[in-house]
């Protein structure tokens, strides 16, 4: 068992426009990438639960050529709305760090 914090070389979040938050997981090797991609752990249900959205609002796209997995969820608020906490959306990745991937 290893966490995504241990398995990823990049784990970042950022706005994809003012309405969406996109999370990129990148891996150093193809082997680690495929292991995580095919683990079955990264499912819309899990991400929906972590980010408080519904399953059908979650997009998960594996990107083989860069050993990366892209996850996109709606922002809690539009960027810059009253109550928004993170205009650029650059610190919204923490809930992913502790996700455990079976060996």
């Amino acid at each position: 068992m290893a966490t995504l914090a241990e398995l990823t070389s990049v784990l970042r979040s950022k706005n994809a426009g003012a309405l969406l938050c996109t999370l990129d997981l990148m891996f150093e090797t193809e082997e680690t990438y495929i292991h995580v991609r095919d683990s079955g752990v990264l499912q819309p249900g899990l991400i929906a639960q972590l980010y408080g959205v519904s399953d059908n609002e979650v997009s998960i796209i594996p990107y083989d050529v860069a050993y990366a997995i892209k996850i996109t969820v709606p922002r809690l608020y539009k960027s810059g709305d009253p109550g928004d906490t993170d205009i650029y959306g650059a610190q919204q990745h923490a809930p992913l760090l502790d996700i455990e991937i079976p060996d």
Partner: peptide, 16 residues
């Protein structure tokens, strides 16, 4: 190569 390939991930909902 990796940095260039990874760039379409940046700030987009889909790299494809």
């Amino acid at each position: 190569r990796m940095r260039i390939a990874a760039h379409t991930l940046y700030e987009n909902p889909s790299p494809y």
